[in-house]
């Protein structure tokens, strides 16, 4: 007993020693904080605490957005505003000037509309495949199985890789003399130009993107599945519910809020697709895998004649789409929070 007391005494003296620097720090803060509180009053302290963050948010988000809007209303190749001239909504007009939106070649900015078409196709296919694959994976990983932790890690690890690394790894596998062709040749098949043939290039852009992000969405769905009480499945079993009906009538409705969040997050990320696809295909062959973000990057920064105004206008249009999707996601989350709170 005495030994235990002694150990506890040592532990408590060690923790007070470790706490000393914090005590000193807090004591040092006391005087300036008292001054600030006297100056702004208790009601104003909220603003004082928010100010540093608002400053960072302003410098890195609000001001760039304002500059972006300003660029989209001006023309020329100069970077600084004094070298640019006001053109009003001309950049938007040229982006949206199209005889038939379904045929990019009839548009004034055909590359923009090609990238819009590519992005739309990518978003629809990638999000569908990604969500279905994540749901299937989550359902499998939620079952009692040997080495479940290991398999969960296997699916999550790609999420930890940087998109550029993902692009490079798959480029190494898929290029003309890459790993996949080497294996195919070994088995007597012909070499395929996976990244140089437009349908295959789009296929691999979607596949790699699904592979890279699957773990993240699987995790969200897995959390949702684990939140469904086991009792409900046992009640369903007692009620004589078959496996498929249990999935449709119990699992899916209860997973629906998570599924909705996953769909919207995946939509937002798919619209923003750039890095891994750019490293993998460079937008090619031709413009067959060029997405909106790549169009903006190339128009504003990569072309010899940098058209910052057009790029800014395109990014504002894309921003509007993303804001709409984010608002949808927030609305879904709020509805869910309200429902849970009810």
């Amino acid at each position: 007993m005495a030994l235990v007391t002694e150990e506890r005494g040592q532990a408590s003296s060690l923790s007070s020693l470790l706490a000393l620097p914090f005590h000193w720090f807090m004591a040092a803060l006391n005087a300036p904080m008292s001054f600030v509180q006297r100056r702004f009053g208790i009601g104003g302290m909220g603003v004082v605490f928010l100010a540093p963050n608002m400053l960072i948010f302003g410098v890195f988000v609000l001001i760039p957005v304002a500059i972006n809007v300003a660029y989209s209303l001006t023309g020329g190749t100069a970077i600084f505003m004094d070298g640019r001239h006001f053109v009003g909504l001309d950049q938007y007009r040229s982006l949206l000037n199209c005889e038939n939106y379904a045929i990019p070649s009839t548009c004034q900015e055909d590359a923009f509309w090609q990238s819009v078409h590519n992005t739309a196709f990518f978003v629809v296919v990638q999000v569908t495949v990604l969500v279905l694959a994540a749901l299937g994976t989550a359902l499998v990983l939620n079952r009692e199985m040997r080495s479940r932790g290991f398999w969960r890690s296997v699916f999550f690890f790609p999420v930890l890789l940087s998109p550029v690394v993902v692009g490079l790894i798959w480029k190494w596998i898929l290029q003309r003399d890459g790993l996949l062709n080497a294996i195919l040749l070994d088995f007597g098949f012909e070499r395929t130009l996976w990244l140089a043939e437009r349908h295959w290039a789009m296929f691999w852009a979607i596949f790699v993107s699904v592979w890279a992000h699957l773990g993240f969405y699987t995790l969200i769905l897995l959390a949702g599945l684990q939140a469904i009480p086991r009792d409900l499945y046992e009640a369903a079993m007692m009620d004589g519910t078959g496996r498929l009906r249990t999935f449709w009538r119990i699992t899916l409705p209860l997973l629906w809020p998570n599924l909705l969040v996953v769909v919207i997050l995946a939509l937002i990320r798919a619209v923003q697709i750039f890095d891994e696809a750019f490293v993998l295909t460079g937008g090619g062959p031709g413009t067959s895998t060029m997405f909106i973000t790549q169009y903006i990057y190339e128009t504003g920064f990569a072309h010899v004649l940098r058209n910052l105004g057009l790029a800014s206008a395109a990014s504002i249009l894309m921003g509007i789409v993303l804001v709409a999707l984010t608002a949808l996601q927030l609305a879904v989350s709020n509805r869910r929070a309200k429902k849970e709170g009810a």
Binding site: P229, L232, E234, A235, M237, M238, L254
Partner: peptide
């Protein structure tokens, strides 16, 4: 024989009502 085919019914501690 499966739970459903035993012709029994169970009332759970947590009630296990389908919330949706």
């Amino acid at each position: 024989v499966s739970a459903a085919d035993r012709g029994l019914a169970m009332v759970f501690q947590s009630y296990a009502l389908y919330p949706h």
